[in-house]
Design a protein around this nucleic acid. Sequence first.
DNA 1: CCAACATGTCACCACACGGTGACTTATAGG
DNA 2: CCTATAAGTCACCGTGTGGTGACATGTTGG
Lengths: 197, 197
Amino acid sequence: MGRDREYSEQRLIQAVGQILARDGFGGLGVNAVARAAGVDKVLIYRYFDGLPNLLRAYGEGADFWPTVDEVLGSDIDAVRRLPPEQRVEHVVLALLEALRNRPQTIEILAWEAVADNALTRTLANIREQWGRDVIARVFPDAREHPDDVLALANLMVAGFQYLMIRARKSPAFGGVDLRSEAGWERIRQAIRFACRA
Amino acid sequence: MGRDREYSEQRLIQAVGQILARDGFGGLGVNAVARAAGVDKVLIYRYFDGLPNLLRAYGEGADFWPTVDEVLGSDIDAVRRLPPEQRVEHVVLALLEALRNRPQTIEILAWEAVADNALTRTLANIREQWGRDVIARVFPDAREHPDDVLALANLMVAGFQYLMIRARKSPAFGGVDLRSEAGWERIRQAIRFACRA
DNA sequence: CCAACATGTCACCACACGGTGACTTATAGG
DNA sequence: CCTATAAGTCACCGTGTGGTGACATGTTGG
């Protein structure tokens, strides 16, 4: 209850994460966030000039997205020595694991799929930039960009992101059990299958 | 203004489709539907016992999902003569085209990704059954089910469905332009690439 | 010490939503 | 023709939302 602006701001930012994890993005609202933070909602307007900016502050603070290093692993050179298809396989599978450990990020991805606001646009831009960075790191010489392989990688990333989003509400998709590790192993296997062939 | 229950019911059902196309599933509500239908909202309760049942009536009426024949084409035997990978390619690409022509279906898919209600569950079940039917038709002898290929097909279907959903709100994904025919041709090419290899 | 300012509290507004009861009016069956 | 019933209209309620103005209280610099 200390009269401390910094503290109140942090409470609000953390409350966004709590609500995101507990209720999903649908539960995000001025009243709900303020309630979860144990703080008056008027402070959202005073300190952040409204909910969008608070969300932006949350987005900038949390580690929404894996770093480029996290998906490339410690030994980048080893990845670069692989044939192009297996480089892609490595990155796609690593991204899949990274996202499975970030429920709030999946929540935001779901949000991006259905809404278009300041936060989702910002985060989408960050991710697009991230994608370009990864490609640049994995394929250093611009001439060898294997367009088909990259497009396929995109499609597979889109695919498992969608499955992660759906898993929150639906138990299965097309016969694949989204709630069991076996189901996700099938998905990984499909990615390997596509990249090996 | 004729005093005709049948007519009013049809107006309401059609209004659901209009709102879906114009405002998306977020605009679906008792007030909005009644307003679009030019009908009092109390009739939604009287005739359909609430919005969920009205949505169900809409879902049963419209051709949300392509028929099995639409994606298999007129000559099923010709498809069956193809090698398994190309059978999958044919079906996946046909489904992609079929869905691109059904904006309301894409809207519902987006809804399914973020909500869990009577309508989305019903439609999800219909689609799961549809998927099983297609597999049974394309791979008549149960022994030869190529599990990896099917899982990959699932992943690709999930992928382009996600891209269709995102296209409504985002102009691009991972460097692929979702608003141009060239971008979608890249996606088709990726599907062919995966199935040919 | 005291005044000025920042921090926090509270009550309130307008609005849109889902939902319902009471009413009027047209239509059809005896 | 007349009455019962279905079809349609309207006003209203409670609730939750985003948003704001007015107030009280703690902290800090002159």
